[in-house]
């Protein structure tokens, strides 16, 4: 059924069988394909080092600065091949990434941080000011702290700054890398709630990479599971969340009958078949 839904609607962003090599030798992605529907929240799941961040950076073209290269496959945004575009051009077209570890401009104030998000915009100061107000509506805490240096704000606030800064670019899709990293569970939930509201009220599409599988599947409507640089499973978030293999391997939940190691083989076989 998911396949029907996927093909019926037009894909905003699609990644077709890309391969990424770091430093000319280290093969990190071995053929990753995924699609992000307009208005969707898509989760990219998997363990540390599975290739989630690399996939996002391949899309936003931030790989170059880390000596990574997309050597095969293609990436299209709104039907246009965007692989050769610079991050600057991608942001102008509406693709922006919120990097893992937040990466605020530490010595700039919270408000200046947000304003840098509008760097590529050409639609005038008053529009930017309107959007600044909008961001403050979603993150009232940032308004209180608008004049403090971002480096001195809490981890949760920095994540909000990072998301708010991306919003200031008026993006069509935000690539959100590991929003839960290093945050208290309550804050993680707060961030995801805001993601949900932004998605529903502002129509922002999200592709988020997350290790916190449980949380991500609660808020996403579609999910891809990466392992060793390959997509090993994909499906609607609700289906994935109920899948026994996913539960066992990523949620750490196991049924009574799955304690034995022998029974795990079903997953192994399936994985080989999928890749």
């Amino acid at each position: 059924m998911s396949a029907v839904i996927q093909s019926e609607r037009e894909a905003l962003l699609s990644v077709n069988n890309i391969e990424v090599i770091y430093d000319h030798v280290i093969l990190v992605l071995k053929g990753v394909s995924l699609e992000v529907m307009k208005g969707g929240v898509v989760a990219l799941l998997g363990a540390n080092g599975a290739g989630k961040s690399t996939t996002l950076k391949a899309i936003s073209n931030l790989l170059g600065a880390e000596r990574g290269d997309v050597t095969k496959g293609s990436i299209t945004f709104q039907g246009e091949d965007v692989q050769s575009l610079s991050p600057n051009e991608l942001v102008r077209r509406g693709v922006i990434q919120v990097m893992e570890g937040r990466h605020c401009f530490e010595h700039l104030t919270v408000e200046e941080n947000l304003l840098t998000g509008a760097y590529t915009r050409t639609d005038g100061r008053s529009r930017v000011a309107e959007d600044l107000d909008l961001v403050y509506q979603y993150f009232p805490r940032l308004k209180e702290r608008r004049t403090s240096q971002a480096g001195y704000t809490s981890g949760g606030e920095q994540q909000m700054v990072a998301v708010g800064r991306a919003l200031m670019a008026r993006p069509a899709v935000i690539l959100l890398d590991e929003p839960s990293m290093g945050l208290a569970p309550q804050l993680v939930e707060e961030i995801f709630e805001i993601v949900k509201r932004l998605n529903e009220d502002e129509g922002v599409t999200f592709l988020l990479a997350e290790q916190n599988t449980m949380m991500a599947l609660r808020y996403a409507n579609y999910g891809y599971i990466l392992e060793n640089g390959r997509v090993v499973m994909d499906g609607e978030a609700s289906v994935l969340a109920e899948n026994e293999d996913v539960k066992e391997f990523y949620l750490g939940v196991s049924g009574d009958d799955r304690r034995s190691f022998r029974n795990v083989k079903a997953y192994r076989r399936r994985k080989r078949w999928l890749s």
Partner: peptide, 16 residues
């Protein structure tokens, strides 16, 4: 000033 603070983040918000 943003570039001075964090090259990567500056790139990510579209500063060339």
């Amino acid at each position: 000033r943003a570039v001075a603070d964090d090259h990567q983040a500056a790139l990510s918000v579209g500063i060339s």
